[in-house]
């Protein structure tokens, strides 16, 4: 599903975000990407959906060679991915239902499909009671769940989550993780960046740890030490 080989990312000005990272993630895995702030977690995720381009090395995501991917093919890659960011990116003037259906509209589904699929996604993330609420009427956890639902609109093969529990309290964080595990059990590969040690230690999943842009450990059923 994901293959990184000797990947480095150096920003203009010389600051090194990632250095010689190599790893593989197979289909159906649930992997935590951990590390302190500035360790390179977000940069690595952004490389995977081609928001950034690697300075060195090769990257393969969902059978696409991301390293040499021309810009006009980036949308094709992203339609195979679901992306959830730390700050819930919801449109303020649209309800939860509309925020989710927006993705389906953009992807070209017809109205009937949009309604059916949006309802299914809302049910999946358990937001039936908040579907007609606007983002400012939702709790942090609900906003994150709405974002996850939207990210699932394209039936992604891989879900990339960049600290989705970063702004949530422990209980809400657990709810989000349970939801992601449910999605993973349905067949979607999940790579989640986090620096929340309590979650990582409790769930006993594969853990990749970054430190100063280097992959320092890759442990099955790992812990955040």
């Amino acid at each position: 599903m994901i293959r990184l080989e000797d990947v480095s990312l150096v920003f203009q000005g010389g600051s090194v975000a990632l250095s010689n990272v190599s790893t593989q993630i197979s289909e159906g895995e649930f992997v935590y990407l951990i590390g302190h702030s500035g360790s390179g977690k977000s940069s690595l995720l952004k490389l995977l959906y081609k928001e950034y381009s690697a300075t060195k090395g090769s990257i393969e995501v969902v059978d696409m060679d991301v390293t040499s991917l021309p810009s006009w093919k980036i949308p094709l890659l992203r339609r195979k991915l679901g992306i959830v960011t730390q700050e819930p990116q919801l449109l303020e003037n649209r309800t939860t239902f509309e925020n989710i259906s927006f993705a389906l509209e953009v992807l070209g589904f017809d109205e009937k499909e949009i309604n059916e699929k949006t309802n299914t996604l809302i049910e999946l993330v358990d937001l039936e009671n908040s579907m007609y609420k606007f983002p400012n009427q939702l709790s942090g956890g609900e906003q994150t769940r709405a974002c996850i639902a939207r990210a699932l609109a394209s039936n992604p093969l891989l879900l990339l989550c960049d600290e989705p529990t970063g702004n949530l309290d422990p209980d809400l964080s657990i709810q989000i993780i349970s939801l992601l595990e449910k999605i993973n059990r349905a067949g979607t590969t999940v790579l989640m960046a986090t620096h929340d040690s309590s979650i990582v230690n409790r769930r006993k999943k594969r853990v990749l740890q970054l430190s100063n842009g280097k992959l320092v450990s890759d442990v099955e059923k790992g812990r955040y030490i």
């Binding site: 949308p75 094709l76 890659l77 992203r78 195979k80 990116q89 449109l91 953009v106 992807l107």
Partner: peptide, 16 residues
């Protein structure tokens, strides 16, 4: 801007 960013993330092409 936010809408455009979301569209790009979802996989909408630049032309679209």
């Amino acid at each position: 801007k936010k809408e455009i960013k979301i569209m790009r993330t979802i996989g909408a092409s630049s032309t679209y």
